[in-house]
Design a protein around this nucleic acid. Structure first.
Length: 384
RNA sequence: GGGUAGGUUGAGCAGGUGGUGAGCUCCGCUGACUGUAGAUCAGCCGUCUUCGACUGUGGGGGUUCGAUUCCCUCCCUGCCCA
């Protein structure tokens, strides 16, 4: 059978960075690329038209959430996730592995899978690698993710290693369970921030016939320095592996630079949309919190350098008012801007990789957002 | 004019029948947020020299060791009657 996706890339000469093209059943995307997160078959407050206008080329949805509501079988009966949500571009579905982590207190992990109390109604739910593949195939996403176990990188090494090796066993089961020739499947590298464990994980995952390699378990409490060091280890271990590399759950504007120069092609993160709903806009002046009193009389657009619908038509003062009044438009206008900003940033990164100005761009953005990110090397929870 | 219920920190309240009223919800201020149980959460929100201290229960006066509480008087508000 023909491969469900194809990825071609070339090194740029800037660190380990690459410029690439990823072709999926629902279209081609340029890499490095950012995927807005649409957990429940919607990028909160935005229509597919908004996403297109913002420059989004691929979005992420979540198998766990959609299996609980409205149900993956129902989505399948309604023609699949693309038709259901009205987005005809590529979709990557997350497996629910992150929920094993974020909802850990609601469930327990065993060798075969995970038993959950649904966060919606408390009903018992069972996720296994086979079940997760069944859900994602019913959704019909372009790219499915293997079911993994993510743990705090700061746990004892033996715990991190246990979860990592279970992830490897589940990876093989996911591959064995797949039946759709038109859906790609990515494996996930785990191993916390331990270089040896990360190397072991890359060796195990890269040996399997996945269509892409994801790096999980980062941006969950470790420092920026640890994340960069871990990405270096992974990039070394992947060496000349030609497959697309996806860093899960990252990130902020400074994070993109740290990861791209270490060979990352794909990102997803809730940050742009979540912080937007909480009043924080990403701009060429850095972060603006539009709930701050100083914006109530500010007639300027959120970002004078931005051409999105929000910045073309509305002032900071108007946004500040909408947030205070808890008007729904606040969430849409802010999310639309932040997704646009993030897509613009990725486009600028791609252009800079092409013309050799990556370092210059990184310095400019770092000046706006602070070195190494907003909060540098905050101590890990268990360091105390 | 008579009766009645009230007056507590921006708003709305709780509490307090003589022994230290800074408690709640809004509003407001600031911060956080990284494969979304998040249009959420946290801190602050009388003053100060802020791990504490001080002031504050409509105004004035009185009784008392001590008054938000008891007494006198005045002011203001709601409702009922005339």
């Amino acid at each position: 059978m023909t491969a469900p996706i194809s990825f071609t890339s070339r090194p740029t000469g800037t660190g380990r960075s690459r410029l690439g093209t990823l072709t999926t059943p629902h279209g081609t995307i340029e890499t490095p690329q950012f995927m807005p997160v649409g957990t429940q078959a919607t990028v909160k407050s935005l229509t597919p038209g908004d996403l297109r206008a913002a420059g989004a080329q691929i979005i992420l949805a979540n198998a766990y959430h959609l299996s609980l509501r409205p149900g993956h079988d129902r989505i399948a009966r309604l023609g699949g996730l693309h038709r259901f949500m009205g987005w005809d571009g590529p979709i990557l579905s997350d497996s629910g592995g992150f929920q094993v982590f974020s909802l850990a207190h609601l469930g327990r992990v065993d060798e075969d899978g995970v038993t959950f109390a649904s966060h919606l109604d408390g009903s018992e739910q069972r996720l296994t690698p086979e079940r997760v593949m069944e859900i994602q195939e019913a959704l019909g996403s372009d790219i499915a993710m293997a079911f993994d176990q993510l743990v705090e990188a700061t746990l004892p090494p033996s715990d991190v290693a246990d979860a990592m090796r279970r992830t490897h066993r589940w990876a093989k089961r996911c591959l064995a369970a797949r039946t759709r020739p038109d859906q790609a499947l990515f494996g996930i590298v785990q191993g916390g921030v331990d270089p040896d464990l990360r190397r072991e994980s890359v060796a195990a995952v890269a040996a399997l016939p996945f269509d892409g390699i994801a790096i999980g378990g980062l941006s969950v409490g470790e420092s920026k320095t640890q994340m960069a060091a871990t990405l270096d280890v992974v990039a070394d271990a992947l060496a000349d592996d030609p497959r697309v590399r996806y860093l899960m759950g990252v990130g902020s504007p400074p994070d993109f630079f740290a990861a791209v120069e270490r060979g990352i092609d794909l990102f997803d993160c809730v940050l742009p949309t979540r912080v937007a709903r909480n009043g924080q806009l990403w701009t060429s002046h850095g972060r603006l919190n539009l709930r701050n009193a100083r914006f109530l009389d500010d007639p300027d657009p959120p970002d004078p350098a931005c051409a999105c619908e929000t910045c073309r038509n509305h002032s900071r003062a108007y946004l500040a008012h909408l947030f205070r009044a808890e008007e729904l438009l606040a969430y849409r206008l802010s999310s639309l801007h932040n997704v646009t900003y993030t897509q613009d940033l990725m486009r600028r990164i791609r252009r800079a990789l092409d013309d050799g100005s990556f370092g210059t761009l990184r310095e400019a953005v770092t000046a706006q957002y602070g070195s190494a990110g907003a909060r540098t090397d905050k101590p890990a929870v268990t360091d105390r």
